[in-house]
C-alpha cells in the first residue's frame, strides 16, 4: 500500500472482488479486496464533497436549481451545502467577483480546510465575462487556484453536474494521503509562484499561451499582469 501510487491504480476503487487470485506471488483469499489507501481515501472524498456556495450573481440561481429536486446534486454526493467555509471542501464561485469582494473570497478560501477544490462557475467568475471594467476581477484564477471551469452565462444545471463528475474524476486521480495534487497543477502553481515575485510587466512565460493569462489570448494583444490596463 504505497502512498502516492494511486495514479497507477486508475481509480474505481475498491477493486477486484470475488475469486481469489494471485498478485505478484501473494495469494489473495476470496472476498478480499486489494487496493491502495490513496485510492480508498480519494473514493471517499469524491463522493462526499461539501460545497461552499460562493454565489454572487445569477449563476447562484442555477446553483440553487442544481441543489433542488429536479436536478438534485445529492445524486453525486455533493448536496451538503454549508455556509461556513470551515466545514466545506469544495468552493463553487458562482457569479462575478468585484474587486471589493476578492479579499473576502481569498479569506474564505484560506478558511477552508485541506483538501479543498474550487469550481469557477460561469463566464464572469472564469474571465470577468462582459464586465470588463475597473471594478470586476477578470477571472478568479488569477488570485486563487481553480480546478474546474464551467462555461456559460449562466451555465445549465447539467453543466454543473458534469463539472462535479469531472471534479470527482480529478479527485480520484490526484488525491493522495500526503496531500500532493495533480502533476499539472503542481507545475502551474510553480509557475505562478515564479511570476509572483516579478515586478509588474516582467512576468516570464513558461510556455506558449502563457504570455497573457494561461492560455487565453486577449484580443488587444499580450497583457502585462498588474500594470495599467487602460489601453
Amino acid at each position: 500500500m504505497a502512498i502516492g501510487s494511486s495514479r497507477e491504480s486508475h481509480g474505481h476503487a475498491p477493486g477486484r472482488m470475488g475469486q481469489g487470485s494471485v498478485t505478484s506471488g501473494v495469494e489473495v483469499p476470496e472476498n478480499t479486496i486489494l487496493t491502495t489507501i490513496d485510492s480508498v481515501v480519494s473514493w471517499c472524498r469524491k463522493f462526499s464533497l461539501w460545497p461552499m456556495p460562493f454565489a454572487t450573481a445569477c449563476c447562484g440561481i442555477e446553483l440553487m436549481a442544481v441543489g433542488a429536486s429536479r436536478f438534485d446534486i445529492a445524486r453525486f454526493g455533493a448536496e451538503v451545502m454549508r455556509f461556513s467555509p470551515r466545514q466545506c471542501d469544495l468552493m463553487i464561485v458562482a457569479g462575478r467577483v468585484a474587486m471589493k469582494m476578492l479579499p473576502v473570497l481569498q479569506r474564505i478560501w484560506l478558511q477552508m480546510p485541506e483538501p479543498k477544490w474550487c469550481i469557477s462557475m460561469g463566464a464572469c467568475a472564469s474571465t470577468g465575462g462582459v464586465f470588463d471594467t475597473y471594478a470586476v476581477v477578470q477571472g478568479i484564477d488569477r488570485f486563487i487556484p481553480v480546478d474546474v471551469y464551467i462555461p456559460g452565462c449562466p451555465p445549465r444545471p447539467e453543466q454543473i453536474l458534469r463539472s462535479i463528475l469531472d471534479l470527482q474524476a480529478k479527485v480520484q486521480r490526484g488525491g493522495t494521503l500526503s496531500g500532493l495534487g495533480l502533476p499539472e497543477l503542481i507545475e502551474r502553481e510553480r509557475m505562478l509562484e515564479e511570476k509572483r515575485n516579478q515586478p509588474p510587466g516582467f512576468a516570464l512565460a513558461r510556455e506558449r499561451g502563457d504570455e497573457d493569462r494561461f492560455g487565453y489570448r486577449l484580443p488587444g494583444g499580450p497583457g502585462t499582469l498588474g500594470v495599467d490596463e487602460s489601453r
Binding site: A135, P145, E193, E229, S230
Partner: peptide, 26 residues
Amino acid sequence: FPLRKDYPLRGRGERHNFPRLTREES
C-alpha cells in the same frame, strides 16, 4: 474617482492589485 471621464474604463490596475494564492500555501 471612477466615474470621471478621464478615468479609464478598465481602471488603473486596481482589479489586479491582489496577492495570488497558490495551492501549496493555502
